[in-house]
Write a protein that binds this DNA or RNA. Structure first.
Lengths: 226, 226
DNA sequence: GTCTATAGGAGGATAGAC
DNA sequence: GTCTATCCTCCTATAGAC
């Protein structure tokens, strides 16, 4: 059983230099996403990223060739998680459950990944020019798939005849708001900062309004299900 | 007949220098709001504003002391129009009409003043640090007034018992989306750019879903009123 | 009111010692 | 892998001629 190459310690997944690299890269990206979210690409200085990640500026350049490279890495990363919440919208689920789960998942994302959400919002405000054609295409396709699911529900009479694309955007916009416009949301609920209780209240309000708004009326008499 | 001072021409409302000033200031502000909306405060260069407004850079400094001054002027201007759409939410109106009018007005604003909307969105993403205490206070109060109107409707049983603050934000977020995330919205409806037809479709979808979602169920059988 | 010129400083990026 | 020193560009802002 003994082998001449590395005894058996396949446990340590990486060499020490690799670990340093991983740690520093992640520190840079964490700092960068925050800054890009607040000040945009052009407004963010490499010096700021360096300071916020606790590294000298030259080290940032050691790990990432340019500012664009940092930004592109973050965009790529973001889009990898893009499909997550959408997966709840599946044709084989009942609209009520699927929609409830989707809204809950998106609100949860807004709460726990507010910075990433704002980073993306900033990129869209910028005009989305950093999104590659491939990435745009991916977004379009993934969205369209889910719109078709909603269309199916409408055809089957499981949903009132509402334009699926705009219905979809309603859920999207509403949940995103709590991340991107957190200051406004906090102001509206009358607090300095949103807490988990506020997100729960938001979820109740959104889910109940949307469900009532899109489910066919006959079923709506049983709306206050547990 | 030569007279030394201008004879009787009180017609021109302003002296010629005043007119030049008005024209140039407005050109600067128009260019600036566009750039600030896309790239944020830190990301926007005075040079760009000068180029976009067709003026030499030094002239921009002649009309506005600093970049902050331009930004502050735009913020102030924006907040003056802040209350407009909210005025539809009045206690003496029926919820159905008030909500319909509010959504229509906000969507109309999103369509016709998308840049201003995006400028504001950018400021919020920035953290809202350019809003003065007075301005924040104004926003808080004006919002709270309208939330109270919705609360009143709920108490009177004219609306289902939904948290008025979150209900309010739903309308806000949904309508704002079509300005701030116009690229995403266009992608979702499958076009290169949103047209007026898309806004009309959006309005139908949002109004019908929201009304159905918030009006008490008994009344909802008559939902397809003219 | 307009515009050229420039001061004074900050930013992105790199070279090269350690 | 780390960091100092530095190049060069570009920016905000101002001075002052026209």
């Amino acid at each position: 059983m003994p082998r001449e190459k590395a005894p058996d310690k396949r446990r340590t997944p990486k060499a020490p230099e690799e670990r340093i690299r991983a740690r520093n890269e992640s520190a840079i990206l964490r700092a960068a996403v925050e800054l890009f979210a607040r000040k945009g690409f052009d407004g963010t200085r490499i010096t700021e990223i360096a300071e916020a990640s606790g590294l000298p500026k030259a080290n940032v350049y050691y790990y990432f060739e340019t500012k664009e490279a940092i930004y592109a890495t973050l965009i790529e990363r973001l889009l990898q998680g893009w499909d997550k919440a959408l997966e709840h919208i599946r044709a084989d689920r009942e609209p009520r459950e699927a929609i409830t789960a989707y809204i809950a998942a998106k609100l949860d994302y807004s709460r726990r990944h507010a910075t990433e959400s704002r980073f993306f919002a900033n990129e869209i405000l910028r005009g989305g020019g950093f999104l590659s054609r491939v990435q745009r295409r991916h977004m379009r396709e993934i969205t369209h798939e889910r719109v078709e699911v909603v269309e199916g529900w409408v055809r089957e009479g499981k949903l009132r005849p509402v334009d699926p694309r705009h219905f979809f955007m309603m859920m999207w916009a509403t949940t995103q708001f709590y991340a991107d416009f957190a200051e406004v949301a906090a102001m509206t609920v009358g607090k300095a900062k949103l807490g988990i209780a506020d997100f729960n209240e938001a979820q109740d309000a959104i889910v109940s309004t949307i469900l009532q708004g899109c489910l066919p009326c006959p079923a709506s008499s049983a709306v206050e299900v547990s």
